[in-house]
């Protein structure tokens, strides 16, 4: 049986939403789904090498004043960081991470090397639209 596919438009660059995306991605990996992630505007900044692993440079989408409590709690519960979630999912299932070309430029990321190694390529919007039409599940985070 062919694997089900998921297309995730990842807009958010906030640490809470990226963590949620990581948890969903883990579930998709356990289910052997093929996943295409399109890294849009704010998320492209989070994927930059000098930012991804530094939570002090990432915002919170909600309950912004509880960011430290959120991060401390994740650590206490032994929850992976959002980057670790994405990395592990890539090791388990077929996950492709595409950086939006415009988004990259906005945050001074012209080349693939400007982003963490998990990123596979830099693409235009047409690829995203095609992926949404072909995927079994579409998500926007």
């Amino acid at each position: 049986m062919e694997n089900k596919s998921m297309c995730l438009a990842l807009f958010s660059g906030s640490v809470d939403k990226l963590t949620a995306a990581g948890v969903i991605l883990s579930g998709a990996a356990a289910d052997d789904m093929d996943v295409d992630i399109y890294v849009l505007l704010q998320a492209a900044r989070a994927f930059k090498k000098d930012i991804a692993d530094d939570s002090s440079k990432l915002a919170m989408a909600e309950n912004v004043d509880l960011k430290e409590e959120f991060l401390t709690s994740l650590k206490k519960l032994n929850v992976k960081t959002w980057v670790e979630f994405f990395k592990e999912a890539k090791e388990i299932t077929n996950v492709k991470i595409h950086i939006c070309g415009l988004a990259g430029k906005i945050w001074d990321g012209e080349k693939l090397e400007d982003f963490i190694d998990l990123a596979d390529d830099i693409v235009g919007i047409s690829e995203y639209i095609t992926a949404t039409q072909e995927a079994d599940v579409n998500l926007f985070i």
């Binding site: 948890v23 579930g27 519960l77 032994n78 929850v79 592990e88």
Partner: peptide
Amino acid sequence: TACPGPLL
């Protein structure tokens, strides 16, 4: 580990 750790 907490969810989704055990599943993975």
